[in-house]
Simulated assay, not measured.
Amino acid sequence: MQMHLTTSAHPGTPPARELQATLGTHCIRLYRGAYLDTRCAENERLTFEDLHACRTFAVMQRNAGVVSGVSAANLHGFPLLRKRLEGDVVLTRKYRGTPGAGLRIRRSPISDDEIETRYGMRVTSARRTLMDLAEQVDAYELLAATDAAMQQGFNPELLPATGRHCRTYAWIKEHASGRSESFAESWCRALMAGAGLPQPLLQVDIFDAAGRFVGRVDKAWPELGVCFEFDGAVKYQQHLRPGESPADAVMREKQRERALLDLGWVVTRAVWADLQDAWRFQSRIHADMQRAALLPSPRGDWKLGVAQRFQPRDFSTLLGVAADSPYPALGIA
């Protein structure tokens, strides 16, 4: 994939009409004078994160301001819902001006210590980005973004203790964890917290009575004998072993669950559809905990496993600018 910017700063790029005619269906208009050539190798896939990053880069070639909100969160590598990435690019500056199609401008003061550079663009810092997200997204989305920020070294205690959204920030400080490995895991924890459930331990390794490793679970309440697993759409494809098919992975997962049940653990599961119905999700876990309370404690042992770091997407190749490139990458046309 390649981006084409038909501006005065890029005299070698063909005119827009010629570019669109040449690329045909492989041409995506990103913004005024900016197009994306989607012809790519078979192993490349244009994600919603990629597309929003390209639109953000294109917008910044023609507009002054600081990338903020969901657009900054995307460049930081914070996970977001698809509907957020399909929205407008968000810039913050002291004057509003005329935004135009595909661009939303927030008029707000912003200090130098709230700005950093990513891919040659001025972008709000992690702290300011999370504070802006508090204005735009639901609490569970903010929790997922904060979890990812913690993996990059951010301390939630830096969020304000007073003022607007202080209650939300206090909740985030209580529940955020750098051990969360996915957006779905964060969403599940938000629903659990909303139901008044005790906070689970994350990424727990479970062993049998002989000390043999049985498996790692997403969340667990060892004192209750309950563990939790989220089954995402790509779970059985991301963790395939060499020569293993998705069907083999499903069978391996069933065998692992059987081993957990044999040790006396109560296993509760959820899929994406369950997250859309908070009452059903919460009621199921409550019921499983009540059932576990009537059973003997699980045999064997457990310990916290090593959490896998969330790897934010690197847009360097796509944008043609290194992540640590200084500002400005290109002049505003």
Rank of each mutant, 00 (worst) to 15 (best):
V266G: 07
E257N: 07
R241A: 07
W265E: 10
P242R: 03
R252M: 02
S245E: 01
H239T: 13
E257T: 06
G264F: 10
G264C: 12
D262N: 14
Q255C: 08
A259S: 14
Q238C: 09
D248E: 09
L263T: 01
H239Y: 14
Q255G: 11
G243H: 04
A259D: 12
H239A: 15
M251Y: 13
D248Q: 09
P246N: 04
S245R: 09
L261Q: 13
G264M: 10
L260V: 02
G243T: 10
E253C: 08
Q238F: 01
L260S: 00
L240T: 03
A249S: 13
H239V: 11
P246G: 04
M251T: 11
A259Y: 03
D248G: 09
W265T: 07
E257R: 11
P242H: 02
G264R: 02
Q255T: 05
R258M: 06
L261A: 12
P242G: 03
Q238Y: 02
A249I: 03
Q238S: 13
R256T: 04
H239N: 12
A259G: 03
Q238I: 05
K254H: 10
E253Y: 04
R258I: 01
R256H: 05
W265K: 11
V250N: 00
Q255V: 06
K254R: 15
G264K: 08
